[in-house]
Amino acid sequence: MSATLTPPASAAPSGSTAPMIAIADLSKTFRRRDGGTHLALDRIALDVHEGEFVSILGPSGCGKSTLLYMVGGFVEPSSGTIAVGGRPVTGPGPDRGPVFQEFALFPWKTVLGNVAYGLREAGLGRSAAEAQARQLIERVGLKGYESFYPKELSGGMKQRVAIARTLAYGPAILLMDEPFGALDAHTRVRLQNELLGLWERDRKTVLFVTHAVDEAVFLSDRVVVMSRQPGRIKAIVPVDLPRPRRREELLLDPRYQRLVIDLEAMIEDPPEDLPA
């Protein structure tokens, strides 16, 4: 339905066109239980361009997930605006595909059923949906696990299914909420590599929330550093490292090391107004 209004992907040179995600003057206030209010996000402004991989980095409680949920349309802003593809966000939609730390798979569906779900929801017939789903399952390295239920899978496999399920319905934007936060260090690195591989092929717009500095630098074009209480953008740091990136080369690259050290110092700064 939006096909007639959004410009085709090929006609969008980066930089010159309107941003894919335009966040302006965005604030979120939560009501506290004692009747007071809590300012979670304070006047956030951020533009994300098509095909860009942007990480939001910050300590827990800085509102970075809330910001992502508002772009997803799951949480309503208290003030300010979010526009995606030039249109104000009024709710969730298949143009923005979420991937959550909690996986949030449908446990009564098999791997195939989960990945095909969004396609079926979009009106595709069963066999066509399943054929597409099988391809995606293969792309995320789970061929052979089509008939498994989520409870039979490890955390890393569940997150691969969740990524495939979201990619399946073809969102222009991926909204990833600490997707590797619940995984062990080894699986985490593997999935970072695979996500990068998938992204370098498709070049989807990605908004990626994390509290891990190395992950943000490894994956992103830009890192948005946030401070907490209230959540504000402290700095937006471009990551000028060549792509395609290989982890073993990057770890030895002084520019990478410099960025990691600088960003770590930035998020470790003690907040000045820490409550006693």
Binding site: G91, P92, A104, T166
Partner: peptide, 23 residues
């Protein structure tokens, strides 16, 4: 119920009745 599961369904375009009966 895991709220994010319902969010995932909403992102796919599922309405409130569908979410209640099918999620």
């Amino acid at each position: 119920i895991e709220e994010k599961m319902l969010w995932s369904a909403r992102a796919m375009g599922m309405g409130p009745v569908g979410r209640l009966t099918r999620v």
